[in-house]
Design a protein around this nucleic acid. Structure first.
Length: 519
RNA sequence: GUGGCUAUAGCUCAAUGGCAGAGCGUCUCGUUGUGGCCGAGAAGGCUGUGGGUUCGAGCCCCAUUAGCCACCCCA
C-alpha cells in the first residue's frame, strides 16, 4: 500500500463500525431515557482523573489494572470505573442539591486487563447513582431500574442475583478478626462459590500469603499453629501475649531501646511496633480464622430462591448468634421488588456474593445473561455508604449500578433483538452534466431539509457506475438530473428495487420517497 | 498474572527451504442517459516487527508486538 508499514490498533480496544455503533447508540439512548423517567439527571464526568480518587476504595484488583501515569508532576489516570468519578463530580458541584440526588451517566472506562471474549480494555458503562437515601426503597428502586432497563431494550433472558455483604462483615466484626486478613477474606469470598475445589483453593491462597498459618488435615479446623515457633523466643512471645495492648507496646519499645536499636526508618515507630505485635499474636487469630472459614463456607452454600435461602440464613444466624439486621433488610428489599412487580423467577439470592469493588457496604447485586451468549455478567451494583465520606464528603448513604454496554450488545445480538440504526442514505442525486450541478446541490439540500439522508454523486463517473454504486450501497432511490429533466423542470425518480422510473416534479418525488421510506 | 493456538493483498485463505498466488471486494472498460449476471483488464505485498541459521527464509530458530481460546477477575 505504501512504503510505511501499517500502524496497529492498540491492544484491547476496538473500532466500532456503523452497524454496531447504531445499535449501541440505540441501547444507550433507551437506557438513559428510562433513567430520566425516574428522575435521574445525566452527568458527564471527565475520562481523566487524579489517580488518588481510586486508590482508597476501588479495590486492589481495579487499582492494579488502572491506566495510571505521571504527567507534568501530576499523577493521572483514565477512569477505571464510573462511580468514584461521578461522586467526585457530585461533591464538587452538586452537594447542595436537595437529597436524594439521582444521577445517571454513560461513558468509557479503561482497565489494563488481558483482553478476551466479552472483555476489552476500553468499555462503556451506563448506570445510575442514588445519593442520600438508605434503606430498601432505595435499593429496590436501583434493582428495579436495572431489570426494567433490560426489559426496555429487549433483553429477556436474565437472572438477578442478590447478596448482602453485611452478613459477612458483621460476623467478622463479631469474632474480632484483624483488618488485613479480614479484607482478604471478603475479597476471596467468591472462591467459595465454586463447586468442589473452591474451598481448598482458598486455603492454599491463605497459606501462600500468610505462611504462618499451617494447614491441618482436619477440614473443620483447616489451620493450626505453626509449631516451628517452639524455641527460646516462644517464652518472650508468650509473655507479650499476656500483656495488654499498651503494656506490650511499651515493653517492645523499651526492649529495642535497651539493645540500642533505633527505629529510624521512614515508617512511624508505632506502626512498626503494631505490626510486630500483631504478627506475634497472629496465632490467636487461628481459631477465629477457622471459624470464619467455616462460616464463609456455610454462607456460600446459601444460594437459590429467595424463600429457601432466607429460611436457611435465619438458621445460620441463630447458630452463630448473629444480628438479624441484614436478613431483615433483604426481606424488605424483596418486598419492595415484589411491589414493583419483579418476575420472581428471575430473582436468586446468593449470600456468598462479595464483588471486587471494596466499597460496597450492604445489599449488592449482579445480573447475568442466561441466554446463549458470551455476555455473562450484564451489570453490577449495590450499596456503598462509606465512599462519599472517604472521598472527603459528609457521611452519606448511596447506591448505584452500572451496565456494561458491550455486553448488552452481545446479549441482544444473541437474543436477536438487536435494533440497529440505519446510516444508509435513502436517496442518491445524480447530476449528469456540469450544467445540472447547481440544481442538483439545491435539490439535495431540499431533500435533506425533509430529514432524508441524501448523497450526491461527486465522482466523475458515468450514470452506469453511479447506479451500480447506489445498488451496492443499498440506496433505495435515485434522482437523475440531466438536460431532459432540466428542460421539463422535473426530476427523474428511479426506485432501485423495482427498477421503475417516473418523471415528476420535485415535490411529488419528495412526497413519494417520504411515504415509502418512513413506513 | 498463568497456560495453549495463530499472524501472507481490504476480507477468507494457498504456496516441498528455490519466480508471492487464488477467490471475494475495490477501480476501469465491454462506445450515445440506466444497476444485480457475464466477459476483459488494473490497482493493491519489504509475508506483523527486529534479529539469527542458510548459497538462498513466507516456511527453520530466538526475541518482540498483536489477535484468538482456557484459567483468574470483572462490566
Amino acid at each position: 500500500m505504501s512504503t510505511f508499514h501499517k500502524i496497529q490498533r492498540v491492544k484491547g480496544v476496538s473500532d466500532v463500525l456503523s452497524r454496531e455503533y447504531g445499535a449501541r447508540q440505540h441501547i444507550e439512548q433507551q437506557l438513559l431515557s428510562h433513567f430520566y423517567q425516574y428522575g435521574y439527571a445525566p452527568l458527564a464526568s471527565p475520562i481523566l482523573e487524579h489517580s488518588e480518587l481510586y486508590l482508597r476504595k476501588s479495590g486492589e484488583d481495579i487499582i492494579a489494572r488502572m491506566y495510571d501515569f505521571q504527567y507534568r508532576n501530576r499523577r493521572l489516570c483514565l477512569r477505571p470505573e464510573m462511580t468514584a468519578s461521578i461522586i467526585r463530580a457530585y461533591l464538587d458541584q452538586l452537594y447542595d442539591e436537595p437529597m436524594p440526588t439521582r444521577l445517571c451517566y454513560a461513558g468509557s472506562v479503561f482497565r489494563y486487563e488481558k483482553p478476551q471474549r466479552a472483555r476489552y480494555r476500553q468499555f462503556t458503562q451506563v448506570g445510575v447513582e442514588l445519593i442520600g437515601a438508605s434503606g430498601a426503597l432505595a435499593e429496590g428502586e436501583i434493582m428495579h431500574l436495572a431489570c426494567t432497563g433490560l426489559d426496555r431494550i429487549g433483553i429477556q433472558q436474565y437472572q438477578l442475583v442478590m447478596g448482602h455483604i453485611g452478613i459477612l462483615t458483621e460476623f467478622l466484626n463479631h469474632i474480632g478478626l484483624e483488618g488485613q486478613l479480614r479484607s482478604f477474606l471478603i475479597f476471596n469470598m467468591e472462591l467459595l462459590r465454586k463447586q468442589g475445589q473452591g474451598l481448598s483453593e482458598l486455603l492454599d491462597r491463605i497459606h501462600t500469603i500468610y505462611p504462618m498459618f499451617q494447614r491441618s488435615s482436619d477440614d473443620s479446623a483447616p489451620f493450626t499453629e505453626n509449631t516451628l515457633n517452639e524455641n527460646r523466643s516462644q517464652k518472650l512471645i508468650d509473655l507479650l501475649k499476656h500483656m495488654d495492648e499498651s503494656e506490650a507496646r511499651q515493653a517492645v519499645i523499651d526492649f529495642l531501646f535497651s539493645l540500642n536499636i533505633t527505629l529510624d526508618s521512614n515508617r512511624d515507630e508505632n506502626e512498626i511496633v503494631d505490626r510486630l505485635l500483631s504478627k506475634i499474636r497472629r496465632d490467636e487469630q487461628i481459631p477465629r480464622l477457622n471459624k470464619a472459614i467455616q462460616f464463609m463456607h456455610d454462607l456460600s452454600q446459601l444460594n437459590g430462591t429467595a424463600e429457601t435461602v432466607l429460611r436457611e440464613a435465619e438458621r445460620l444466624a441463630e447458630a452463630y448468634e448473629l444480628s438479624r439486621a441484614p436478613l431483615e433488610q433483604i426481606a424488605q428489599l424483596i418486598q419492595v421488588l415484589r411491589a414493583y412487580g419483579l418476575d420472581q423467577t428471575k430473582l436468586t439470592l446468593d449470600l456468598g456474593l462479595s464483588r471486587g469493588l471494596q466499597y460496597y457496604t450492604g445489599a449488592m447485586f449482579e445480573i447475568y445473561h442466561t441466554g446463549k451468549s458470551e455476555a455473562g455478567q450484564l451489570c453490577g451494583g449495590g450499596r456503598y455508604d462509606d465512599l462519599i465520606h472517604t472521598l472527603g464528603g459528609p457521611k452519606t448513604p448511596a447506591t448505584g449500578f452500572a451496565y456494561g454496554l458491550e455486553r448488552l450488545y452481545l446479549a441482544l445480538e444473541a437474543e436477536q433483538h438487536l435494533k440497529t440504526a440505519d446510516f444508509i442514505p435513502q436517496v442518491l442525486v445524480i447530476p449528469l452534466e456540469g450544467e445540472e450541478l447547481s440544481d442538483s446541490i439545491r435539490i439535495a439540500q431540499q431533500l435533506r431539509d425533509q430529514a432524508l439522508r441524501v448523497e450526491m454523486t461527486i465522482r466523475e463517473r458515468s450514470l452506469k457506475s453511479s447506479l451500480q454504486y447506489a445498488d451496492r450501497r443499498g440506496i433505495p432511490y435515485v434522482l437523475i438530473l440531466g438536460s431532459q429533466e432540466r428542460a421539463a423542470d422535473q426530476v427523474r425518480l428511479r426506485e432501485m428495487g423495482t427498477r421503475t422510473e417516473s418523471l415528476c416534479d420535485l415535490t411529488t418525488a419528495i412526497r413519494h420517497i417520504k411515504e415509502a421510506v418512513n413506513v
